[in-house]
Amino acid sequence: MPRTLTDQTVEQLGGSGSILVRQRREHEEIDRLMSRYLDAEEDLRRRERALKQVVQLVFSHAFAEETVLWPVVRATVPDGEELTARVEEEHQQINDLVADIERLPAGAPEREDKVRRVFSLIREDVRDEEDLLLPRLQEVTGTARLRTLGTTWAAVRRTAPTHPHPVVPRRPPGNALLGVPLSVYDRVRDALGMGGSASRRRR
């Protein structure tokens, strides 16, 4: 039975550059940012800043997974197609909910409900990846390959889109072809402070 990533050491996961360590590290950062949002109940500005960081990290992280990592899982893990399809469906649900969130004004009750649903889906997605999918990849992949995948994944993540785009396919080559121009668009929006709630965009 493959072991969850949660209870393995960095060395067991292939070292600090391994895709497994990089994935776990970013999952922990996403969880920290979600907790920051939930803890700042009376501070709308702080909550919005934390939510923006969650969105940017989640979408660049998922895009790199879908572009670099899941094709390898499908090619090497016996039930890789089923496992990646499950995670891709979770990613699509997150994509759709965040697109709705970004159209609603900050503080709206409907928006808050969607944020909590997104956070729940993100946590479910992390468990599926760390408990099921990535341990299966670990079983069939050597340390050197895990580190190479980590380097490639990190490079793609740094230039990935940072917001939801319903038109982008979940799989290569479509996502990679559309991802480049959308990444530029997203990062310009982020730099100008245009990514976020409807109320902020109107201002």
Rank of each mutant, 00 (worst) to 15 (best):
Ile30Phe: 08
Arg202Gly: 00
Thr159Glu: 13
Val180Pro: 01
Asp186Thr: 03
Gly174Ser: 11
Gly17Thr: 07
Arg189Gly: 06
Asp100Glu: 15
Arg116Lys: 12
Glu90Phe: 09
Leu178Glu: 05
Arg145Gln: 15
Glu11Lys: 13
Glu65Asp: 13
Glu139Val: 12
Arg22Leu: 13
Val118Glu: 03
Gly195Cys: 03
Val55Glu: 06
Gly15Ala: 08
Glu110Val: 10
Glu129Trp: 04
Ala62Leu: 06
Ile122Asn: 04
Arg24Phe: 11
Ala99Cys: 01
His61Gln: 09
Gln8Lys: 10
Ala191Ser: 15
Ser35Arg: 14
Leu192Gly: 02
Val68Ala: 05
Ala40Val: 05
Pro161Met: 11
Leu178Ile: 09
Gly80Pro: 10
Ser120Pro: 00
Leu192Ile: 07
Ala62Glu: 08
Glu29Asp: 13
Ala176Glu: 12
Leu20Asp: 07
Leu97His: 06
Thr162Leu: 00
Ile94Met: 10
Thr151Asp: 15
Leu146Arg: 07
Leu5Gln: 04
Arg123His: 15
Arg171Tyr: 12
Gly179Ser: 09
Leu182Arg: 01
Gln93Tyr: 04
Val126Tyr: 02
Gln92Glu: 15
Leu133His: 07
Arg22Pro: 00
Leu38Gly: 03
Ser197Trp: 02
Thr84Pro: 04
Gln8Trp: 06
Glu29Gln: 14
Leu51Val: 01
Gly193Val: 05
Val87Tyr: 04
Leu132Cys: 01
Gln23Cys: 14
Ser197Tyr: 08
Val55Pro: 03
Arg46Cys: 02
Glu29Ala: 13
Glu88Phe: 01
Ala160Phe: 12
Arg46Tyr: 00
Val188Arg: 09
Leu44Arg: 15
Arg187Lys: 13
Val72Cys: 03
Arg47Ala: 10
Asp100Gln: 15
Leu38Asn: 07
Val54Arg: 01
Glu112Thr: 13
Leu38Met: 13
Ser183Glu: 06
Ala160Ile: 08
Gly179Asn: 07
Arg147Ala: 14
Thr84Val: 15
Thr159Leu: 14
Ile19Asp: 02
Ser16Asn: 08
